[in-house]
Design a protein around this nucleic acid. Structure first.
Ligand SMILES: [Mn+2]
Ligand SMILES: [Mn+2]
Ligand SMILES: [Zn+2]
Ligand SMILES: [Zn+2]
Lengths: 130, 130
DNA sequence: TATCAGTTTAGAACGATTCTAATGTATTGA
DNA sequence: TCAATACATTAGAATCGTTCTAAACTGATA
């Protein structure tokens, strides 16, 4: 895609074959939550065999450029989120699935942070089922 | 300690030397957030050399009995929390430290969960600094 | 088209956690 | 009291997601 190459260049990323394929998938307009593994599987289904090393490199490169958000939900894998706006999530451990909560939520009753510490961001994770 | 042995037996756990040492430390009345590594270091300072395998086993045994809570904060390690009440946390990535938020907090504006899914629990994580 | 910095890749390394299987110990009932 | 036995501890190997290494490759530039 011409657009994606332009998009990558704009973000100081060389539009290599692999990056173009991955960016085309990730930034197709539908927000996604991927792990290195789920992305690899998806790419294989699309007949794009890209090494795991490159997938990890690319996810981190995109993250460095602010194109992806990192989500630390559990200790088993890192999720990358194409929705870079501040938002919250439903999480189903059973399905290993995340669902965006874009609605304006408010947390009230928050105590003051400890001395010399500032609040960076508030993350709400709504666990579903088990 | 007599009390701790009784406490372990009450929870269907044999009061072995190692479990008594660990339980004495964890359940001394001060809530704690430990990882296998931080617990091991603390025990070494107390001149108690307990193998990592036993530390992992014991943390999981205590967790199974509901004496500890598991916290999945980041992808690098699992935290165990001696505060088993529902509560929230401040988290400083820089210090790798968790601080309990026991105050009643309320989350408003939460959308309905997806069909056939029930909300299990809501976790608020307040990130400090970086 | 030559050059070269940046990229891809296979495979090794890493680190937290789990597993294995041999040894040790708390419990219990004769 | 003291086997017998079920359960616990341990060192070290295995596992698995992720990162690193170093050699081959390729996009950008002139
Ligand atoms: Mn881990
Ligand atoms: Mn991981
Ligand atoms: Zn999201
Ligand atoms: Zn806590």
């Amino acid at each position: 895609m011409k657009d994606i190459k332009h998009f990558l260049r704009q973000n100081s990323l060389r539009p290599t074959k692999q990056r173009v394929i991955i960016a085309n998938y990730l930034f197709d307009g539908v927000n996604k939550h991927v792990t290195a593994e789920t992305l690899s599987n998806k790419l294989l289904k699309m007949k794009a065999e890209i090494s795991l090393a490159t997938i990890y490199n690319t996810l981190h490169d995109f993250y460095e450029k602010g194109l992806l958000k990192k989500l630390m939900i559990n200790s088993e894998r890192i999720y990358f989120d194409t929705n870079t706006e501040h938002h919250h999530h439903f999480y189903s451990k059973k399905d290993q699935k995340l669902i965006d909560i874009n609605v304006d939520m408010k947390v009230s009753g928050l105590p003051k942070p400890p001395k010399n510490k500032k609040i960076n961001k508030i993350e709400v994770l709504v666990h579903l089922d088990n």
